[in-house]
Amino acid sequence: MSHHEKFAWGSLIASLLAWSFLTMRMTDSWAVVNVSPGHMIWTYGAVVVLMIVAHATLAAILDARAGSEAGKDERDLAIAARAERIEGLVVLAAVNVLIIHALAQAAFAGHALPSIDLGTLPVLFYALLTVLFLGHITSQLATIWLYRA
């Protein structure tokens, strides 16, 4: 397994743990709870710090072990570019789902689709962060898949 593949696995695990932490802080039985802005600011700060510390630690450990293999060559760059394109498409699709859902909810009140109340700040906060995590997790999964394909 290459240095960059190991980093993608580490990043994937760190992202899933950080998203689990976010979910634990924001939901109760999979429903978003109405928390205070202070709670959300603290949660946001903690998630950002968690991600930075996890990725910096991961990079430091892997770079120390890899030595000259730590640099990216043209195949690594091509894989990173493809994974970023896939991430962009997933984020684009997820944001569009949220937009269409919000518009449908406003225009067709009482429809049969599952309801997400994007009008409340905690739900919007959780939905947007989840979209960002979804994009990053997809990018890491695509990276792992492309290295093995």
Partner: peptide
């Protein structure tokens, strides 16, 4: 890999014909 400034994994992928190198490489 060292002589052509690529990683060993890239050489493995090229040899297995899973990756087409750039013209330069």
């Amino acid at each position: 890999a060292e002589r052509v400034s690529a990683s060993r994994q890239t050489i493995i992928a090229i040899e297995a014909e899973k990756y087409a190198p750039s013209l330069e490489l």
